[in-house]
């Protein structure tokens, strides 16, 4: 958190140690070429078992994790996060997927991933996202924001009771702007708040998404097919 102020753009002096987990070698090499100089790739894995081993060995700051992975018990990315549970304090997971299916995305987020991006994301964007996750922030793609809004509803929380099950008015605003394609910086500008505040809101939403016992959330995700 030494250069939190530069979360949007830079932090060029620090290098983030990253493990890339994806079962397609072509995609891994493409991703390696795309990531910029802030990222230091210390390991690769192509299956659940391999990923668990490499992560335990390398203890990276960030794991770029494909949602769909062969091996293990068939749980894919979720299983990798669950298997690395003791490391969750120091290692953060950023889910990466071609699947836009809500059930997949919500499953890895609830397992403990700090964010979710689609594989079509550009090199600089994904580098930014990795740095942001390394700094302890959450990364929401427009689609994930859309899922959150769909799952939690678009009306703000009024009673303190269901604090975990609803989003506050401000969180809703942030989520809406992200869903509309705004970057954190643009959200901050639009709402006249600091980027740090935006990140706080996004992290709060992520926490709710992970902790909410809202039983509809899982049901909703399961019912929802491809988006």
């Amino acid at each position: 958190m030494n250069d939190a102020g530069a979360a949007g753009g830079g932090g060029s002096q620090r290098r983030v140690r990253v493990v890339v987990v994806d079962d397609h070698a072509i995609f891994r090499s493409g991703l390696k070429a795309d990531l910029d100089s802030r990222i230091d790739i210390v390991g690769e894995a192509g299956s659940v078992d391999e990923a668990l081993r490499v992560i335990a060995e390398q203890r990276p700051e960030v794991v770029l994790l494909d949602v769909h992975l062969p091996g293990g018990l068939g749980g894919g990315g979720r299983e990798v996060i669950a298997g690395s549970a003791p490391l969750l304090g120091s290692t953060r997971f950023l889910a990466l997927s071609v699947s836009d299916a809500a059930e997949d995305v919500v499953a890895v987020i609830r397992a403990g991933a700090r964010g979710y991006v689609t594989k079509t994301i550009s090199g600089p964007e994904i580098s930014d996202a990795v740095v942001r996750v390394a700094d302890g922030d959450a990364v929401f793609s427009p689609r994930l924001a859309g899922f959150v809004l769909d799952a939690f509803g678009t009306s703000p929380a009024e009673i303190a009771d269901d604090e975990l099950d609803r989003l506050s008015a401000r969180e809703l605003e942030v989520m809406r702007l992200i869903a509309r394609g705004y970057s954190y910086k643009e959200v901050a500008k639009e709402l006249f708040i600091s980027i740090k505040t935006v990140e706080t809101h996004v992290s709060a939403v992520l926490r709710k998404l992970q902790l909410s016992s809202r039983h509809e959330l899982t049901k909703w995700a399961a019912e929802r097919r491809l988006l």
Partner: peptide, 19 residues
């Protein structure tokens, strides 16, 4: 570049944002 479209429909109506 990428065009972002966001559609939100609720009881009060529908909104579309094209960015």
């Amino acid at each position: 570049g990428t065009v972002s479209v966001y559609l939100e429909t609720s009881d009060t109506g529908s909104e579309i944002f094209v960015k």
